[in-house]
């Protein structure tokens, strides 16, 4: 057994264990943290496939940003676990069907790809730059799909903001520009007053 295989199986076992934990753990915060572990381990597997750019971006985007917001939401929720488990058996058939379908689809995909390649990709030259190769592909051959994805994301951002933005009349707001413009002359009035004698 080579060190590569040992590494692969270590990562794979942790990944599968974490993924199982995500759906079986009772505490939703534990689920979210296990999902973080799953993302991180799959990034490790991608590094083994010499896709270091994708692996780093996976950590940066999913672990560093998306899952932080997930955790944020999950921690703020007041989850009632007993109510969540209500009607578990009545949902089981439809849930089972969806799960089986997903497994079948993924199986087809993975089996097809596995049957075709079957081995690790050939080792790349030491000065080969993954980042540069990916950038070149994205901005030349795949520039239209790339820009399409960017536009869809932009629309999603604007839609999310438009849905949640509301102007409340009661909100107190400070205009920083006005604060900067504030001048002592407009705020303080110095009055010359003759001193008065206190009545004894």
């Amino acid at each position: 057994m080579t060190s590569e295989l040992i590494l692969f199986y270590t990562f794979a076992v942790i990944l599968v264990g974490a993924a199982v934990g995500v759906v079986t753990a009772r505490n939703p915060v534990h689920c979210a943290l296990l999902l973080v572990l799953a993302f991180f381990t799959s990034a490790g597997l991608w590094v083994q496939l010499q896709a270091e750019f994708l692996a780093i971006v996976l950590v940066l985007v999913y672990v560093g940003a998306v899952m932080v917001l997930f955790l944020f939401v999950v921690m703020m929720l007041d989850l009632n676990l007993t109510r969540l488990r209500e009607r578990f058996w009545s949902y089981l058939p439809i849930g089972g069907i969806v799960a089986l379908l997903l497994v079948a689809e993924m199986g087809l995909l993975v089996w097809g790809a596995y049957a075709r390649s079957g081995a690790m990709p050939p080792a790349l030259a030491p000065d080969y730059s993954n980042t540069r190769a990916l950038g070149r592909l994205i901005y030349t051959d795949y520039v239209y799909p790339f820009e399409l994805a960017a536009v869809i994301l932009l629309v999603a951002i604007i839609a999310a903001i438009a849905l949640t933005l509301r102007h409340r009349k009661t909100t107190k707001y400070q205009d920083p520009a006005q604060q900067v413009k504030a001048h002592p002359k407009g705020r303080v009035r110095i009055i010359a007053m003759a001193s008065e004698k206190r009545d004894e």
């Binding site: 915060v29 943290l33 973080v36 270091e52 750019f53 780093i56 971006v57 950590v59 940066l60 672990v63 560093g64 940003a65 932080v68 955790l71 944020f72 921690m75 730059s129 993954n130 980042t131 540069r132």
Partner: peptide
Amino acid sequence: NIDAGLLYVMAITSITVYGIIIAGW
């Protein structure tokens, strides 16, 4: 001396926040 060094630093430092979130929770 990895090629995506800048990105690696970005990715690793973005994990720092977990220590703080987990500590608070």
